[in-house]
């Protein structure tokens, strides 16, 4: 490959051919989603002290509606991806598996999908039971 081709092959779609950039981008996006969720979570749970037991339980009834259970499932997906890809990053920091980084990414995705399926069964069973 000439120098000119090597330069252009690494921009635009070329940069996105490998899994590495997607792994990084999904990690960053899921991380930012989780940051927002953490503060929302603190705000919701602190309603226990602000509203007391009765107010807290009323709020939780709303959060058990199908809409919020499905949002929770999306949250689980973000946690699973960020956590499993994070383990992959930790392994690289220890010098493990750098040459296998692509297969490790697919392993993380497969593990995430399998775990998400378990949570999906639990969630939809819960929704079906009302």
């Amino acid at each position: 490959m000439s120098d000119k081709n090597r330069e252009t092959a690494n921009v635009g779609a070329g940069l996105w051919k490998g899994v590495g950039m997607w792994a990084w981008l999904f990690h960053r996006v899921s991380g930012l989603v989780l940051v927002l969720y953490l503060f929302a979570h603190i705000a919701v749970i602190s309603q226990a002290r602000l509203r007391g037991a009765a107010g807290f339980d009323t709020l939780f009834k709303t959060l058990e509606s199908p809409f919020f259970v499905i949002l929770d499932l999306a949250l689980i997906a973000a946690v699973l991806y960020h956590g499993l890809n994070g383990v992959r990053v930790l392994l690289f920091d220890l010098g493990v598996g750098i040459r296998q980084h692509k297969s490790l990414w697919w392993a993380a995705v497969a593990g995430g999908v399998a775990s998400l399926a378990v949570f999906a069964v639990i969630s939809f069973t819960f929704i079906a039971q009302g």
Partner: peptide
């Protein structure tokens, strides 16, 4: 960042399994 990552992976596994698999539908103040 690495140390807290390990705490979160282990802690969230406990947190999510206990709350969303074993206590789903029963979550309340009590």
């Amino acid at each position: 960042q690495r140390v807290t990552a390990v705490v979160l992976v282990v802690g969230l596994a406990v947190h999510l399994i206990v709350l969303h698999a074993f206590n789903l539908g029963d979550l309340s103040y009590d």
